[in-house]
Design a protein around this nucleic acid. Structure first.
Length: 475
RNA sequence: UCCCCGGUAGCUCAGUCGGUAGAGCAGUUGGCUGUUAACCAAUUGGUCGGGGGUUCGAGUCCCUCCCGGGGAGCCA
């Protein structure tokens, strides 16, 4: 007989393991035990207030300890940062700030935290300082909220694709194609770097390395995803990606997570439709499931977060071709830091102008000059542009990049040659065009970029648990 | 990698013309029957990022290295 109980799996052990989140949903009078970490403690004569947080939701539970309810010896050890279990009765709170609170009958200390040197104070800290203590920053409001949002977002992403019959494919992390062209790669080797084996010509003898040739960490799973798309029709990757570029910016990481759907039989218009639905659906999910966390970001990090997200979730995305976009930028009469000319790449200032001022909503730019896009993008009939699409959103700029892939064997070969790449390692990529080739499309989305968009946090190092950047791989 | 700004108490910062170091917060102690970043009072706390130089004297000026932030390039 489990119906009606808010947490059926807790029946019979309700006082054993109840999270703060669950406790708020229980009825007044429930006898429960909460476990977590003390955020703060306030004393008055005869009464002590403890904020207990276990990460289950943004809000902590206020514990109220009347004089004598708990031995002084125990209460003394309840300090900011300490871990405790508190048993008591859920009661209505007579004061503002919370509907219910826990009237404490007993406290057990798990682990103390010396207040003299516990780094996390009750007051605000800079994000830069917290970044240096990544092992503790997750106990703060900002990072608690950020990683609950990240969890919800990843769940929403999987759900979005699974509900649409996409197959999740784990593309390899180690690759031997050193020419994916998406950026500098990390080498992977078991050779002795002090004294690598040499061939007769004096160069390093890679035949003696683990894979018999140079190997690297992947910079994209797209090419392998295409293999699966041409068998399962609709697939997506969701995994780590590595770039060895020495870029020190608030928008770049050496290790980040990327989502790359790939769909057979999809043309560019279908790709665009999916990208729009993807963004709206996942944003909606986070809005519905992380309200408390988003409200915190809206209040303390970026005042426009909620309005922007609600707007994006409801609006019909705009659409403009690259060629028309260039016209639009030119006739704006604005003084651009970077010149606007057909054939050049759109800069961040251009992208933001299009989404924030021309369309005032997300806009998809399509059909870029082939010279500024990757070799695998399908060439249009005009011979000058390719079926690429970038989704630009207000405040952030590009959030998704995608394209219809070149499915014609000979055209692809020509493009590869023009790009100055060696055909050989792509033999299997060409085979896909030789045997049962079909039109197909896909796009890529950086998880952390989307996290920045959702939270308003301005440094990408604050939306990944343990950021890896040039010179930094702590924790 | 390049350009700009910064590094002073556990945290956030001030420090004048080069003259020997200061605040708020937290910590500690005491007070207060319901607090919400509690409040009130007292109080501890410093190799001024590292190294070198100029000077009678350097937190302050010069050189250099390290670290952090912002911008650029590259991109997701």
């Amino acid at each position: 007989m489990t119906s009606g109980h808010p947490f059926p799996y807790l029946i019979g052990m309700a006082s054993q393991f109840v999270s703060v989140k669950q406790a708020y949903a229980l009825t007044v009078g429930s006898e429960i035990t909460l476990r977590g970490w003390v955020r703060s403690r306030r004393d008055s004569k005869g009464i002590t207030f403890i904020e207990l947080n276990d990460g289950s939701r943004f809000k902590s539970m206020q514990l109220v300890v009347d004089a004598g309810a708990v031995p002084d010896e125990t209460l003394k050890q309840v300090t900011t940062g300490s871990s405790i279990a508190a048993s008591g009765t859920l009661v209505e709170s007579p004061a503002k700030g919370q509907a219910v609170e826990l009237k404490v009958a007993a406290i057990q200390i798990y682990g103390g935290a010396d207040p003299a040197n516990y780094p996390l104070q009750k007051k605000g800290h800079t994000l830069e300082f917290l970044r240096e203590i990544s092992h503790l920053r997750v106990r703060s409001n900002t990072f608690g909220a950020a990683f609950r949002v990240r969890n919800a977002l990843t769940h929403a992403i999987h759900t979005f694709f699974q509900e649409r019959d996409f197959i999740y494919v784990q593309t390899p992390i180690i690759t031997t194609s050193d020419c994916e062209g998406a950026g500098q790669m990390f080498g992977v080797t078991t050779l002795n770097l002090q004294q690598p084996p040499r061939a007769q010509d004096g160069k390093i003898d890679w035949q003696q390395d683990f894979f018999g040739r140079p190997a690297y960490l992947t910079v994209s799973g797209q090419l392998e995803a295409e293999i699966f798309a041409l068998a399962f029709s609709k697939v997506y990757t969701f995994g780590p990606t590595f770039r060895a570029e020495n870029s020190n910016t608030p928008r770049h990481l050496a290790e980040f997570w990327m989502i790359e759907p790939e769909m057979a039989f999809y043309e560019l218009a279908d790709d665009m439709r999916l990208a729009e639905e993807f963004l709206k659906t996942t944003i909606r999910y986070v809005l519905d499931h992380c309200r408390e966390d988003l409200e915190f970001f809206n209040q303390f990090i970026e005042k426009s977060v909620l309005a922007t997200l609600e707007h994006v979730a409801e609006s019909k995305f705009g659409h403009i071709t690259y060629t028309d976009a260039i016209q639009e930028l030119k006739k704006s009469g604005k003084a651009w830091d970077f010149p606007v000319d057909w054939g050049g790449d759109l800069q961040t200032e251009h992208e933001r102008f299009l989404s924030e001022e021309v369309f005032k909503k997300p806009v998809i730019v399509t059909d870029y000059p082939k010279e500024i896009k990757a070799f695998y993008m399908r060439v249009n009939d005009d011979g000058k542009t390719v079926r690429a699409m970038d989704v630009l959103v207000p405040r952030v700029g590009e959030i998704i990049g995608g394209s219809q892939r070149e499915e014609r064997h000979d055209v692809l070969r020509e493009r590869l040659r023009d790009a100055g790449l060696d055909e050989k390692p792509y033999w299997w990529y060409f085979d896909l065009r030789r045997y049962g080739s079909v039109p197909h499309s896909g796009f890529g989305l950086g998880l952390e970029r989307m996290m920045m968009y959702l939270t308003g946090l301005k440094n990408i190092r604050d939306v990944i648990p343990f950021p890896r950047t040039p010179g930094n791989a702590d924790f």
